[in-house]
Design a protein around this nucleic acid. Structure first.
Lengths: 106, 106
DNA sequence: TTGATAGGCAAGTCATTGCTTGCCTATTGT
DNA sequence: ACAATAGGCAAGCAATGACTTGCCTATCAA
């Protein structure tokens, strides 16, 4: 579940793709390829980007819709919302580092 | 920078370790090992956990302090705060999926 | 109908990574 | 002093992952 989201976010190229979809949602595979090449210096094959998009879609971060021969990719930020709150305390933003002793000191 | 944070969060065992440090900060290596074995069924060697802690420390998610022969591990949630906001719009939590046409249609 | 465009599938390569094993150092208790 | 405890270092292994190459299908324009 959230496992796929973390794995999807692990790769820097996939994060770039999310950046591009944040800038402009509903892009096709070739558009994303072009942007990764021109805006960032990434030299990637089309299949590489396609596989990255598959990972992002499996994580629920990208949803796709087909129209004719085009396949548009839309960003879905929903899986990102409650991921990190797992470790951020509900009220305490900074745990004040209370020094503690080991659990069992035999 | 944030690159290391995402890579650190990619592994499920490392996320378990963060869970354990959230439950009780300032644990030693052996304590974390014990908890991973008993609470979750993970059969891990001491070195495996040690290497995971090294990755977490390199990402800034865990800070360590030495006292005698003990080394205490403290959770640091600071790097987690501004990571995901990169894709979450500043005001719009849900982008309403406006359908768009390809950039260049020759 | 033919060719160009947009995309998919599958096998293969190469680097990374998670984990183990073995040995070594430092601190503490008796 | 000696043994037990807490941890570190480094080489090795097996599995995953990112990327490429090659070929194949579907849609649209001429």
């Amino acid at each position: 579940m959230a496992d796929d989201v973390f794995k999807a976010l692990a790769d820097p190229t996939r994060r770039r793709i999310l950046d591009e979809l944040t800038d402009r949602t509903g892009q096709t595979l070739f558009e994303i390829c072009g942007r990764l090449v021109t805006k960032h210096g990434l030299g990637l094959s089309r299949q590489a980007v396609s596989q990255h998009l598959a990972v992002l879609e499996a994580a629920g971060l990208v949803s796709t819709r087909r129209e004719g021969r085009y396949k548009f990719h839309d960003l879905n930020t929903a899986p990102l919302e409650h991921i990190v709150t797992r470790w951020l305390g509900p009220k305490t933003p900074q745990t004040p580092q209370t020094p503690q002793t080991p659990e069992s000191t035999p």
